[in-house]
Design a protein around this nucleic acid. Structure first.
Lengths: 245, 245
DNA sequence: ACGACAGGTTGACCGTCATCAACGAAAACG
DNA sequence: CGTTTTCGTTGATGACGGTCAACCTGTCGT
């Protein structure tokens, strides 16, 4: 599969207004008129193969990326080599927000499968946000939403037990798949057990064991990377009432 | 101590340009001219007693708050009552960023001591940010910095052991005190062991034990809430090389 | 299509930190 | 100013999840 598309195809820009991700991406809530104006934001698009880095720690920050197709993980590494997955991103979500702070990327973004992103040059985004109130508002919401998301991960890592973490993780994935028009009860994990564990502060063996355990309990069905949620309610119950504390 | 100041004193607005926190707060990097313009941002100030809430979960979001004096913790609670401290904030830092996303506050902000904040009406901030490029840039950096901070907490909670967490916590506090012109080697904790533990994903007993252990090792001196860092280098070393893994 | 390797599962054992408990000290309250 | 409550320390014990290891399966690359 060749990533170098012929020039004609390459120029063929899929306008935001034509994109089926509009409700999930930056243009949310903008008027038709404003959407037309922000289309100039997306200069180019970029394709990535599985395992390829969109950007890496310490690289200079210049652009944000909206995921058009595929999915990513973001990771941060300690000096001693320990690595942590800080998030999994799906279509419509924005990558690169961490770079704004210092002008250098803090995390690395790695494609979990062959993927494509829209490149949003940050300087242009700032300029347009000064002109289009709706864009500014939406961008701030995206930033704030990321703050909130990370807070709930902190909650998960700080207070939850392994079962609860996995349950919360699966339900979160399900909800995001559903928001994208896919099944919220049956889906395929794009990441390995080790990546899940890294995100949840668990070892891969614990992830594997806990998934098996969920299956024995009839909560889910697991077959490799294919997941099927059989009993959402009980899964949800797991989070709220860990062990009748 | 009366919180109701006489009207004259109440009106007496300490302008941003006169505030000694300028280098830590929103005006960072702005021209004198621009600073003059953003002074209209701070409509009022608000004093809080120890343990008083600046805002709480689910309260409608309307303003951000810049800490003028004192310090805060932000906490999030799960339905089952479990609580987690998501951050400790000091002078010059901004509170309320979590509310932008949904228009409701997600966390609660509680004063750790008698404190004072500048109220920054969010609508005004957005309007001014559209006019003053430097303010927009700075605000985005603040949002992004919070994202990055939370990522390093995720790293801490996900991969570090109790000793490492405490060491990282103390060094971070020290650095922030130093940035504010206070001693970076001797300071007073504003929070309880339980709050520290909640933030670090540990129980208060573990926090207490680990601090005692650090003291035995000659790394720090602890007396109640007073901390003195005796050997920053070895403390730092603890984080990078946990147990020669 | 085949082989090599990454990814996943399961078991046995062990370490870190949580839990329960008792005590002591400081600080907040009237 | 004394009393009560909150906060902190330390000890004993145990559980949860980490570690090490063996084995299996699917997938990727050639």
């Amino acid at each position: 599969m060749d990533l170098q598309l012929p020039p004609t195809l390459r120029q063929l820009r899929v306008a935001c207004s034509q994109c089926n991700l509009m409700e999930l991406c930056l243009p949310v809530g903008l008027s038709e008129e404003d959407v037309a104006r922000i289309e100039e934001l997306v200069g180019t698009r970029r394709k990535l193969r599985r395992h390829q880095a969109l950007y890496e720690t310490r690289m200079p920050f210049q652009a944000l990326y909206a995921i058009r197709a595929g999915s990513f993980k973001t990771t941060i590494v300690l000096e001693d080599g320990r690595e942590q997955v800080t998030g999994f991103q799906m279509t419509g979500e924005l990558l690169g927000l961490d770079g704004i702070s210092t002008g250098q990327h803090v995390v690395s973004a790695i494609a979990l499968e062959d993927s494509e992103v829209c490149v949003i040059e940050y300087a242009r985004l700032e300029a347009l946000a000064r002109e289009i109130h709706g864009l500014q508002a939406q961008f701030h919401k995206v930033l704030s939403r990321e703050i909130v998301r990370e807070q709930s991960v902190m909650m998960l890592l700080g207070t939850m037990r392994a079962e609860e973490r996995l349950a919360a993780f699966l339900l979160n994935l399900a909800q995001r798949f559903a928001a994208r028009g896919f099944s919220g009860t049956e889906f395929r994990l794009r990441m390995t057990r080790e990546e899940i564990g890294s995100y949840l502060g668990l070892k891969l063996e614990t992830v594997s064991r806990t998934l098996s355990h969920f299956q024995e309990e009839g909560l889910i069905e697991v077959q490799h990377k294919n997941i099927r949620l059989c009993d959402r309610e009980r899964l949800r119950g797991l989070i709220q009432a860990p062990l009748s504390h």
